[in-house]
Design a protein around this nucleic acid. Structure first.
Lengths: 191, 191, 191, 191
DNA sequence: GATGAATGAGTATTCATTCAT
DNA sequence: AATGAATGAATACTCATTCAT
């Protein structure tokens, strides 16, 4: 009976950490940040309350970690290549794909918007958020510049804001909001 | 000798009520609904916790009252006339004026977005929100229709979503977001 | 316009005091002591909260006053004459009449039992309670003595206890408890 | 190294639970249900407020649990055998034993009477109370029937009421109430 | 590493009582 | 005398966090 190797421990750790984070994401998105309790998350993850603190120093750290993880996951869909400038077709495809991605990750986005509204959490996460968002914005700006638009950064930020607005409205009124049409119009008018 | 007159009491009441609502608005907008506690609001208003319940039966009632008050205040800026359809100039002016209004009422809007994110609070004010928002959306749709656009309702919802997105981004990054430019572009592209 | 005379003031005072006590009794018996609030009582009496304290120094004093008033009212039904000893017929009639009285004053009795259970209130009122109850017990003892029973005081206390028990059970299960039969049996067996 | 075993946890839990229930019983019986606060009970049990909710979901659940526990304990003394009908000697013994039991469990009985007076609490435990009390009443009725008495159910209820009354009076005036004599008289007159 | 018992500060809400007028 | 606004301590309950084992 030999003790577990360091590798085995690490594996257990990261598997369990993932499980906790998954549970936390679910609970956050189901109940909102305010009502999501450590107990419930621990229960959902099949882990004791005490053990949670072995993986995350505090609820705050859990939130931050989750948020950054979610961002990473979401932004990875954007596949921004900082070296090249997309063509119109590529850019259009990028928007379509991104918005498609959005629909497939509503829980993450719900959390994203929820966090954005909580001034205190927001501040903790601001830096990371900008790190993720900036490359996308810059890519958009580069695209607009390449197409000869003036004030490309402003255009990029407007586009991003518009996509935010569409996402938000879709989230709030999933049944009735004309999601596909809105995206098509945006592509037609703003790209 | 004699008790205070009804007028005196009414004056005290409305002065205090206003102070409480102002404090509540501030706290809600600074901390979000989740973390805004009755204690904090009472403290900010310079009033005892107990007194709060003299003016509002519950936290819920306070939230609703504030929200409806804020909505009324905000929507009054929109001056929607349900009988007539605006011309392009009028509609443009309406958008500009509305967005100008937005800048002057950031605290209220912060609360508006905060509410939109909290499913539970949202449900309580859903009815009022739709009562306020629907006439605006319908007016926008009528405008698009009169201009010969197809799918005017979808266009109207997209416009509203876009304005939401601009507001949200301006709120989150007041320093850098190109607010005026974004509005001008919207007017140029979507109207 | 002459000022009111002292008599007029006194009249107002005692009329109002009676109104407050009536309201308090109602509220106590409807909601129990625990949940009966000064506000509610004041409202029911058509009087301001502040004024209540002009008539009763505290809620405690109000309770005591009410209780003693209720006792006086209830015990007056017993018409105990300390000088004479009742005959068997008189005593039987006394019991029947008393128990009849009980049915007509359920709210008072509910309060009586309710108070009896609250150790703290009980202590305040103990003296008065005994002042009222003792003459009745003594009369009962005298009756038993006159009938040649041994240990008349114990018999009297047992009778009083039995009547308490019947009242209590009737109060708790008014629908099903065989009130009249129980009294008839008591009269047959214990008198 | 290893967490406590399930057995250790169970032991801690039941030891603590017992301590809380004991404290609750004391406080309930001293102060009545109305004034017995969770704080006071926690303090008496030497336990934090929070921990109480680890063992009982709510004050209501605590009350019910205590009450049912007390009833079970009390009624176990009655040893009712639903199959057989007691002889006069057995029945007499049963009454004596029951009333003896009563003296040894005054705190429980204080709580019992206290509950009976509080309409709201009463409703919560009504079902349990009747489940416990009914077999006893029915056994009493069967006894009376076997002895050839008419209206045996009414007689049974009267007997129960009388015992209630004796208990109540003993509780209120332990010093002077002639408990033993009263029981002897009851056995002589009502059995 | 792992457990869940335990804590204590926090939450919304209620209410007897005081007090300026 | 009369009012009701105002207070503050109390209530039941929650929950992030710590800690003995």
């Amino acid at each position: 009976m030999s003790p577990r190797t360091k590798e085995q421990f690490d594996e257990i750790r990261s598997e369990r950490k993932a499980r906790i984070m998954q549970a936390a994401l679910e609970v956050f998105s189901e109940e909102g940040f305010g009502k999501a309790s450590i107990s419930k998350i621990a229960g959902r993850a099949g882990v004791s309350k005490g053990l949670m603190y072995n993986y995350f120093k505090s609820k705050e750290e859990l939130i931050e970690t989750i948020f950054i993880d979610a961002m990473t996951r979401l932004m990875s869909g954007f596949e921004v290549n900082p070296k090249t400038t997309p063509s119109k077709e590529e850019f259009t495809l990028f928007i379509k794909k991104s918005m498609d991605d959005f629909k497939n990750n509503l829980p993450y986005w719900r959390m994203y918007f929820s966090v954005m509204m909580q001034a205190d959490v927001m501040h903790k996460v601001e830096k990371e958020l900008f790190e993720f968002a900036m490359p996308v914005i810059m890519m958009m700006a580069k695209y607009y510049e390449s197409q000869g638009f003036e004030n490309p950064l402003a255009k990029a930020r407007l586009l991003a804001a518009t996509l935010d607005g569409i996402g938000l409205n879709y989230m709030m009124d999933t049944e009735n909001f004309p999601y596909e049409e809105a995206i098509d119009m945006i592509i037609e008018k703003l790209i």
